[in-house]
Design a protein around this nucleic acid. Structure first.
Length: 208
DNA sequence: AATAATAGCAACCGCAACCCA
DNA sequence: GTGGGTTGCGGTTGCTATTAT
């Protein structure tokens, strides 16, 4: 029994993509657009499974990818988002234009985990390790979380909402029982004193 | 110079969510 | 309502490059 395979594995390539495969994939998507990943490999003349094509496109070939080193601002934003969302890499990636969930996940595991440990912060819980944490940073995160919890409690009784088309995408964060909001990528606010702050509008918390 | 250890990252795998007949 | 097919996500693996011995 068991699951049926996502593709005919006997006739698919695995491992690193060649330049020619990349070119075929990019050319196909340029003409036909993204989607229909299952049928794409055959249509594009690729001996790959759809999943592999999708991953390659999203993580490496998409033209809007930023690539290159993460900035200090991106680091801090990832840490804050992770403290609120946990390992929801796709949601975190949605906040960082030009970055992919896989890239952020890798960066977290190789760089940020170590960075937090050196600050004395547990990278999983974002709480101090052995009481030696960077107190101001921890305090800031805890402040945000407790604020969101309070707001959530206030909102929990009156949960009927309109279904306006202009309403941004929302989701509930199961770990924290919070309601969060995804809006279009951040515009840098030049005259803002802080590089990142929090904005609470219409019952929705947003990073800015 | 050779080898071992470590870091970094691309890619794979399995599962869950979603969609649709 | 349900079951099968498809897509997306997160965890993990394995390869390559770099650094240390």
């Amino acid at each position: 029994m068991g699951r049926s395979p996502c593709c005919e594995k006997a006739h698919t390539n695995k491992g690193a993509w060649t330049k020619e495969e990349d070119e075929r994939l990019v050319a196909y998507i340029k003409v036909h657009g993204e989607g229909c990943w299952r049928s794409l490999p055959k249509a594009a003349g690729l001996l790959r499974c759809g999943k592999s094509c999708r991953l390659r496109w999203i993580n490496y070939l998409r033209p809007d990818l930023k690539r290159g080193n993460f900035t200090e601002e991106e680091d801090e934003l990832i840490i804050k988002l992770h403290s609120l969302l946990g390992n929801k890499w796709s949601l975190i990636a949605g906040r960082l234009q030009g970055r992919t969930d896989n890239e952020i996940k890798n960066y977290w595991n190789t760089h940020i985990r170590r960075k937090l440990l050196s600050r004395g912060i547990d990278p999983t819980t974002h709480r101090p390790l052995h009481g030696q944490a960077d107190a101001s940073f921890v305090k800031e995160v805890e402040k945000v979380v407790s604020f969101m919890r309070r707001e959530d409690e206030n909102n929990s009784s009156s949960n009927s909402r309109s279904n306006s088309e202009e309403e941004p995408k929302r989701w509930r964060c199961p770990d924290l029982n919070l309601e969060l909001c995804i809006s279009p990528p951040l515009q840098k606010q030049e005259d803002s004193e802080e590089e990142y702050g929090l904005c609470f509008t219409n019952g929705l918390l947003e990073f800015r």
